[in-house]
Amino acid sequence: MQKPYIILEGNVEYTLGHIQNNLIIYDFDKILVYLNAKGKLLFGAGFKLFDEDSEIVFRLCNYMIRDEANCKKLDMDVRKGVLLTGPVGCGKTSLMKLLRHIVPHQKPYKMMPSRNIVFGFNHIGYKTIEDFGNGQCFCFDDLGVEPMGRHYGKDCNVMGEVLLSRYDLFLGYSIKTHATTNLNAQELEERYGIRVRSRMRELFNLVAFDDGSKDKRT
């Protein structure tokens, strides 16, 4: 029988928890050991999780494993997606790429740079918006810094339209959407308008790095 809390990477086995009363009880310290190891495999030997980010990692891990009791304490709604915000280089994209690996039994979300979606729109038009309004779970990376879309001379705020489609999916089918962004709430509202910003409050749990978080890429 497959045990989703035991993950094999090469010849190394990582046990992230144990079964108790038919529930997986995860061990956060063991999850951290696995995340650091998996991060090195994905991003290179220099990867590491920083102590200063432990609170954010803890919040996101509890969300990913769907620990409803802890999420309630952390003011996280497991039905919603995650909007991970913070300054450039603080590690948002790497974290979202990494964390999906601790729950191999769940259908993974697909990482998609927001600018690539706009480039697709510029090439093939509104079908692009339909394609990202489907039943798959996505994480839109670098939301808010993508260019305006333009197809056959007509401008379109592509990601704003995609988010409205994702909101309808969330309401109708409980399909989650995740995103990372460098922008704050006011900047997002200026970029997408009040209507989309209102929908984003319902779509996402906000998880924010401190404004002073250092650039991990330097």
Rank of each mutant, 00 (worst) to 15 (best):
R79S: 15
G133E: 07
K127L: 12
K80R: 09
K72Y: 12
G86R: 06
R150F: 11
Y34F: 11
F132V: 12
R66A: 11
H123V: 00
H123R: 10
R191I: 13
E9N: 07
V82G: 05
M1T: 11
K176I: 08
Y63N: 06
V12A: 07
L16S: 11
D131T: 07
I129L: 04
M112Y: 01
C137E: 14
G193M: 01
K73T: 13
I7H: 07
I6T: 14
I31W: 00
C156R: 13
R100S: 11
V118N: 04
V158Q: 15
K3S: 08
C61V: 15
R66E: 14
Y126V: 13
F50I: 06
N134V: 10
T128S: 07
R150K: 15
S114E: 03
P108Q: 05
N205Q: 03
A208N: 13
C61Q: 01
R197L: 12
F140K: 01
M96I: 11
Y173K: 15
P87R: 14
E13W: 06
D210L: 07
D155P: 14
R79L: 13
D215L: 03
M96R: 09
K97W: 11
K97N: 15
R201D: 12
L163V: 09
N70Q: 15
F58Q: 14
M111K: 00
G125H: 07
T93L: 07
V78T: 15
L99Y: 12
H101M: 00
G144D: 04
E189K: 12
M112A: 01
L60T: 02
F47W: 05
E52R: 10
E187V: 00
Q2Y: 13
N11R: 10
V88G: 01
T218Y: 03
T177G: 03
L169Q: 12
D77W: 04
D77T: 06
K110S: 00
Y34G: 01
N11V: 11
K40G: 00
Y109K: 00
L8C: 02
E13C: 08
D141V: 08
V82M: 12
E130N: 15
I175P: 06
F170T: 10
R59K: 14
A69K: 14
L83A: 07
L171C: 14
M64H: 04
V78Y: 09
T85C: 15
I7N: 09
M159A: 11
H101A: 00
H123N: 09
K176F: 10
M200Y: 05
F170K: 12
G10I: 03
G144W: 03
S94Q: 12
I6C: 09
P87K: 12
A37W: 00
A69G: 04
Y167N: 08
Y5L: 02
Q2K: 15
L203V: 10
D67L: 04
S114C: 06
L98I: 03
L99T: 06
L60V: 03
G193E: 07
I25P: 00
H151W: 15
K110P: 00
V12P: 02
Y167E: 03
C90D: 03
G44S: 08
N62A: 09
M64Q: 14
K214R: 06
K127Q: 14
C156W: 02
Y26M: 08
R166W: 11
K38A: 02
K92P: 02
